[in-house]
Protein backbone atom coordinates (compact mmCIF):
# COMPACT_ATOMS: atom_id res chain seq x y z
CA UNK A 1 0.00 0.00 0.00
CA UNK A 2 1.39 3.36 -0.90
CA UNK A 3 1.58 6.02 1.72
CA UNK A 4 -0.81 8.37 -0.14
CA UNK A 5 -4.02 6.50 0.31
CA UNK A 6 -5.45 5.57 3.69
CA UNK A 7 -2.89 7.36 5.85
CA UNK A 8 -4.35 6.00 9.06
CA UNK A 9 -4.67 2.32 8.13
CA UNK A 10 -1.57 0.20 8.47
CA UNK A 11 -0.12 -1.61 5.50
CA UNK A 12 -1.18 -4.98 6.73
CA UNK A 13 -3.92 -7.36 5.81
CA UNK A 14 -5.79 -9.41 8.33
CA UNK A 15 -6.72 -12.95 7.46
CA UNK A 16 -9.31 -14.07 9.94
CA UNK A 17 -9.85 -17.73 10.45
CA UNK A 18 -6.83 -19.06 8.53
CA UNK A 19 -5.46 -21.01 11.45
CA UNK A 20 -8.74 -21.71 13.16
CA UNK A 21 -11.82 -19.66 14.05
CA UNK A 22 -10.19 -17.57 16.85
CA UNK A 23 -6.79 -16.97 15.30
CA UNK A 24 -5.99 -13.70 13.58
CA UNK A 25 -2.89 -13.46 11.46
CA UNK A 26 -1.53 -10.29 10.02
CA UNK A 27 0.65 -10.34 6.95
CA UNK A 28 2.40 -7.31 5.85
CA UNK A 29 5.56 -5.54 5.00
CA UNK A 30 7.97 -5.17 7.95
CA UNK A 31 9.33 -1.86 6.68
CA UNK A 32 5.90 -0.33 6.42
CA UNK A 33 4.89 -1.62 9.84
CA UNK A 34 7.94 -0.16 11.54
CA UNK A 35 7.60 3.11 9.68
CA UNK A 36 3.96 3.34 10.62
CA UNK A 37 4.80 2.89 14.27
CA UNK A 38 7.54 5.49 14.16
CA UNK A 39 5.69 8.22 12.32
CA UNK A 40 2.54 7.89 14.40
CA UNK A 41 4.16 8.60 17.71
CA UNK A 42 6.81 11.20 17.26
CA UNK A 43 7.57 12.37 20.76
CA UNK A 44 9.27 15.71 20.57
CA UNK A 45 11.77 17.25 22.94
CA UNK A 46 10.68 20.55 24.46
CA UNK A 47 13.55 22.62 23.13
CA UNK A 48 12.32 26.15 22.78
CA UNK A 49 14.84 28.92 22.97
CA UNK A 50 13.08 32.03 21.66
CA UNK A 51 9.89 33.28 20.01
CA UNK A 52 9.32 30.17 17.95
CA UNK A 53 9.05 28.39 21.26
CA UNK A 54 5.78 30.14 21.97
CA UNK A 55 4.39 29.07 18.62
CA UNK A 56 5.55 25.54 19.42
CA UNK A 57 3.72 25.69 22.74
CA UNK A 58 0.62 27.06 21.08
CA UNK A 59 0.82 24.39 18.42
CA UNK A 60 0.78 21.76 21.12
CA UNK A 61 -2.03 23.39 23.09
CA UNK A 62 -5.74 24.09 22.70
CA UNK A 63 -6.46 25.10 19.12
CA UNK A 64 -3.79 23.42 17.01
CA UNK A 65 -3.41 20.19 18.83
CA UNK A 66 -0.27 18.23 18.09
CA UNK A 67 -1.44 15.37 20.26
CA UNK A 68 -3.80 14.19 17.53
CA UNK A 69 -0.72 13.34 15.43
CA UNK A 70 0.64 11.28 18.27
CA UNK A 71 3.21 13.92 19.12
CA UNK A 72 3.44 14.62 22.83
CA UNK A 73 6.17 16.67 24.42
CA UNK A 74 8.80 15.15 26.61
CA UNK A 75 11.12 17.09 28.83
CA UNK A 76 14.07 14.78 28.53
CA UNK A 77 16.00 13.81 25.40
CA UNK A 78 16.22 10.21 26.52
CA UNK A 79 12.53 9.65 25.87
CA UNK A 80 12.07 11.65 22.71
CA UNK A 81 12.77 10.92 19.07
CA UNK A 82 12.13 14.29 17.49
CA UNK A 83 13.93 17.50 18.30
CA UNK A 84 12.19 20.62 17.11
CA UNK A 85 14.83 23.33 17.29
CA UNK A 86 12.68 26.38 17.82
CA UNK A 87 14.55 29.61 18.29
CA UNK A 88 17.93 31.22 17.91
CA UNK A 89 20.99 29.20 18.78
CA UNK A 90 23.89 31.21 20.13
CA UNK A 91 27.47 30.12 20.41
CA UNK A 92 27.09 29.68 24.14
CA UNK A 93 24.17 27.32 23.57
CA UNK A 94 25.65 25.42 20.63
CA UNK A 95 27.61 22.93 22.69
CA UNK A 96 24.57 22.08 24.81
CA UNK A 97 22.44 21.59 21.71
CA UNK A 98 24.88 19.05 20.30
CA UNK A 99 25.01 17.29 23.64
CA UNK A 100 21.21 17.06 23.78
CA UNK A 101 21.16 15.71 20.23
CA UNK A 102 23.69 13.06 21.12
CA UNK A 103 21.65 12.05 24.15
CA UNK A 104 18.63 11.20 22.05
CA UNK A 105 18.39 7.51 21.15
CA UNK A 106 18.21 6.38 17.52
CA UNK A 107 16.19 6.74 15.33
CA UNK A 108 16.03 10.48 15.76
CA UNK A 109 14.84 13.31 13.58
CA UNK A 110 15.36 17.04 13.66
CA UNK A 111 13.01 19.76 12.49
CA UNK A 112 14.52 23.20 12.23
CA UNK A 113 11.73 25.64 12.99
CA UNK A 114 11.85 29.29 12.13
CA UNK A 115 14.28 31.58 10.37
CA UNK A 116 16.75 31.71 13.23
CA UNK A 117 17.23 27.96 13.27
CA UNK A 118 17.29 27.72 9.48
CA UNK A 119 19.88 30.40 8.70
CA UNK A 120 20.33 32.74 11.63
CA UNK A 121 17.24 34.78 10.87
CA UNK A 122 17.20 38.55 11.31
CA UNK A 123 20.48 38.26 13.21
CA UNK A 124 22.37 36.97 10.20
CA UNK A 125 24.01 40.22 9.22
CA UNK A 126 25.20 42.02 12.31
CA UNK A 127 25.21 39.66 15.24
CA UNK A 128 28.48 38.26 16.48
CA UNK A 129 27.20 35.46 18.64
CA UNK A 130 24.42 33.72 16.72
CA UNK A 131 25.03 30.43 14.94
CA UNK A 132 23.94 31.01 11.37
CA UNK A 133 21.76 27.97 11.02
CA UNK A 134 21.43 24.91 13.20
CA UNK A 135 22.54 22.65 10.36
CA UNK A 136 26.08 23.81 11.06
CA UNK A 137 25.81 21.72 14.23
CA UNK A 138 23.45 18.79 13.68
CA UNK A 139 21.85 17.11 10.66
CA UNK A 140 18.40 18.45 9.88
CA UNK A 141 15.52 16.59 8.22
CA UNK A 142 12.90 19.28 7.67
CA UNK A 143 13.16 23.06 7.56
CA UNK A 144 10.07 25.07 8.44
CA UNK A 145 10.37 28.69 7.32
CA UNK A 146 8.69 31.63 9.01
CA UNK A 147 9.37 34.19 11.66
CA UNK A 148 7.69 32.71 13.57
CA UNK A 149 6.01 30.00 11.48
CA UNK A 150 2.34 29.60 12.13
CA UNK A 151 1.30 26.44 13.97
CA UNK A 152 -0.21 25.22 10.70
CA UNK A 153 3.21 25.53 9.09
CA UNK A 154 4.75 23.49 11.87
CA UNK A 155 2.07 20.84 11.46
CA UNK A 156 2.85 20.82 7.75
CA UNK A 157 6.48 20.26 8.64
CA UNK A 158 5.59 17.33 10.89
CA UNK A 159 3.46 15.80 8.15
CA UNK A 160 6.36 16.21 5.72
CA UNK A 161 8.58 14.44 8.22
CA UNK A 162 6.04 11.66 8.44
CA UNK A 163 6.23 11.26 4.65
CA UNK A 164 10.01 11.08 4.89
CA UNK A 165 9.77 8.40 7.55
CA UNK A 166 7.39 6.42 5.36
CA UNK A 167 10.08 6.16 2.70
CA UNK A 168 12.80 4.79 4.93
CA UNK A 169 14.11 1.28 4.44
CA UNK A 170 14.87 -0.45 7.72
CA UNK A 171 15.68 -4.01 6.74
CA UNK A 172 17.77 -5.54 4.02
CA UNK A 173 21.13 -4.75 2.53
CA UNK A 174 20.39 -1.14 1.67
CA UNK A 175 19.01 -0.31 5.10
CA UNK A 176 20.48 2.50 7.15
CA UNK A 177 19.72 3.24 10.78
Amino acid sequence: MSGDKAQAAPALSVLPGSLGPEAHVMIGNADKFVNWCRRSSLWYLLFATACCGIELMQAGASRYDLDRFGAVFRATPRQSDLMIVAGTITHKMAERLVRLYEQMPEPKYVISMGSCANTGGPFFKDSYCVVKGVDLLIPVDVYVPGCPPRPEALIDGILALQKIIDQKKNFGKTAKA
Binding site: H91, A94, Y128, C129, V131, K132, L136
Partner: peptide
Protein backbone atom coordinates in the same frame (compact mmCIF):
# COMPACT_ATOMS: atom_id res chain seq x y z
CA UNK B 1 36.10 37.10 15.16
CA UNK B 2 36.22 34.60 12.31
CA UNK B 3 35.57 31.41 14.20
CA UNK B 4 34.57 30.45 17.70
CA UNK B 5 35.24 26.84 18.72
CA UNK B 6 35.27 25.86 15.09
CA UNK B 7 31.90 27.37 14.20
CA UNK B 8 31.85 30.28 11.80
CA UNK B 9 30.80 33.50 13.48
Amino acid sequence: PEFYHGIKV
